[in-house]
Amino acid sequence: TTFVALYDYESRTETDLSFKKGERLQIVNNTEGDWWLAHSLSTGQTGYIPSNYVAPS
């Protein structure tokens, strides 16, 4: 499932994924509650993102 970032997010830990508003993200795993494992289609990096910062594209 592809989502789009609603806001900028700066990672707080090394497992988080930083992203910019408008960036497209492929969700890898969304069974972890409020933090989803995502892959950035812009940077190619993978990490955890706050689910309330993204919406379906």
Rank of each mutant, 00 (worst) to 15 (best):
N29Q: 14
W36N: 04
Y9Q: 04
S42A: 13
A5S: 07
T31C: 06
W36L: 09
K21D: 03
E14W: 05
P56G: 10
L6S: 07
G22E: 02
E10R: 07
Y53M: 10
Q26I: 06
N52C: 11
S11L: 01
N30V: 05
P50Y: 03
T2G: 07
W35I: 11
E32S: 13
D16Q: 11
R24T: 13
H39K: 09
T43K: 02
W35D: 06
R12H: 15
Y48E: 01
N30G: 10
S42E: 11
Y9D: 00
T15E: 08
K21V: 08
S11A: 13
L37H: 03
N29V: 10
S11V: 02
G22F: 04
V54F: 04
D16K: 15
K20S: 10
V54I: 10
V28L: 14
L41V: 14
P56R: 07
G22V: 00
S42F: 08
A38D: 01
A5Q: 00
L37D: 01
H39L: 10
S40V: 05
S18R: 08
Q26A: 10
V28K: 15
G47Q: 00
A5P: 01
T2M: 14
W35K: 11
T15M: 04
P56T: 06
F3A: 11
W36F: 11
Q26E: 09
Y48Q: 08
T13R: 14
D34V: 12
T2E: 11
K20L: 12
T1V: 13
V54D: 01
S40P: 02
E10S: 12
E32D: 09
T31G: 10
R24V: 14
T2C: 06
D8Q: 08
K20R: 11
D16G: 13
F3K: 05
S40R: 11
I49M: 03
A38V: 12
T13M: 14
T2D: 11
G33E: 15
L41S: 15
Y48W: 13
T31P: 05
E23P: 00
Q45F: 06
F3L: 06
A38C: 03
L6M: 12
L25E: 01
S51A: 12
S18H: 12
D16E: 14
D34F: 08
E14I: 10
Y7C: 09
G33N: 14
L41G: 04
G22K: 01
W36G: 00
W35N: 10
G44D: 13
R12G: 10
K20T: 09
T31S: 15
Q26T: 14
A5N: 01
E32Y: 08
H39V: 11
N30K: 07
E14P: 13
P50A: 04
S51W: 14
P50D: 04
T13H: 04
Y7T: 04
S40T: 02
W36T: 08
R24M: 14
N52H: 12
K21Q: 12
Q26S: 13
L17W: 03
A5L: 02
S51M: 11
N52V: 13
T15L: 05
T15C: 06
N29A: 13
R24A: 13
A5Y: 00
G44R: 05
A5T: 10
E10P: 02
F3Y: 11
L37N: 03
E10W: 06
P50N: 03
S11T: 04
G33S: 08
S42P: 03
P56K: 05
E14R: 09
T2I: 15
D8A: 07
D16H: 10
A5M: 07
Y53T: 08
W36I: 12
E32K: 15
V4Y: 04
T1S: 13
P56Q: 03
P50M: 02
V54G: 01
W35R: 14
N30E: 09
T31D: 09
N52A: 11
G33M: 12
L41Q: 09
L25W: 02
T46P: 02
L37F: 14
S57F: 07
T31F: 14
N29K: 14
T46K: 13
I49V: 09
Y7M: 12
R12L: 07
Y9R: 07
T13K: 13
R24N: 06
L41M: 04
T46A: 11
T2L: 06
Q26M: 04
T13F: 06
L41H: 15
L17P: 06
Q45Y: 06
Q45I: 08
Y48G: 06
K20W: 02
V4F: 11
